[in-house]
């Protein structure tokens, strides 16, 4: 007769393996969804970039095209950023999130450059805010104020339709972000750069940020 303990441990093991398998399948599904969405975003941005380059060879005004493309892409980028963060926190087994996040950071940076160009070259009434936060910090022990700052910036984005936030991890593993970080002298999070001019190291209140930008309606719609 099989011992009660052997049967119990076997049953427990089956239940645990079933749970782990469910988690593994969920991880695979999340990775697959994100990979597809990041690929779509990459193609769209690449498409825009080449189109703009093509227009510049013809000496044609690219502002109108850039405006139209950016509107589409920025909404998707925000959604994807939220999804990546949510999925990364839910992830248990997959290591692919870092690769996905890295690709996202590059693509988001390209979007940021387009925004910069919209404001600086095309004269559009848009504001861009770079937000440096701590990456890989789910318990926020490195950057206890980052979540509060993110919430303030979300409110800013909601209140001012012509303002877009570009979140970059200051402790990133991408050289590109490190260069931008060093350019603004950022060594810890949170840090906020408004329209490439005003740099706030440490937490900054909503009222301060609102005073520094010209809040308006979304000019891209």
């Amino acid at each position: 007769m099989v011992s009660t303990y052997v049967k119990g441990i076997a049953l427990g093991a089956v239940l645990l393996i079933a749970s782990m398998s469910a988690l593994w399948i969920l991880d695979q599904q999340r990775t697959s969804i994100l990979s597809k969405e990041i690929q779509d975003m990459t193609w769209e941005i690449e498409d825009s970039r080449l189109y703009l380059e093509y227009l510049s060879t013809l000496n044609e005004d690219s502002c109108a095209v850039m405006k139209a493309r950016v509107v589409q892409q920025v909404g998707k980028s925000d959604e994807l950023a939220k999804k990546i963060d949510a999925y990364k926190n839910a992830n248990m087994f997959s290591e692919e999130y870092y690769a996905i996040k890295k690709t996202f950071i590059y693509k988001n940076f390209e979007l940021f450059l387009n925004f910069k160009s919209l404001r600086d070259d095309c004269g559009e009434n848009v504001n861009y805010v770079i937000y440096f936060y701590a990456e890989n910090d789910p318990d926020q022990s490195i950057c206890p104020d980052c979540a509060v700052q993110a919430d303030i910036l979300n409110t800013l984005g909601n209140n001012c339709e012509n303002t877009w936030i570009f979140a970059l991890p200051y402790n990133s593993y991408t050289d590109l972000v490190n260069v931008v970080r060093d350019q603004y002298g950022v060594t810890s999070g949170p840090a906020v750069v408004v329209n490439g001019e005003s740099v706030h190291r440490g937490m900054v209140e909503l009222s301060t940020l609102e005073a520094e930008i010209t809040c308006g309606e979304n000019p891209l719609e």
Partner: peptide, 18 residues
């Protein structure tokens, strides 16, 4: 902790079966 709780419950469940 879940593994421990679940295994304990499974052993007791088997004890009840027997």
């Amino acid at each position: 902790s879940s593994a421990l709780f679940i295994t304990q419950a499974a052993i007791f469940l088997m004890a009840l079966e027997d």
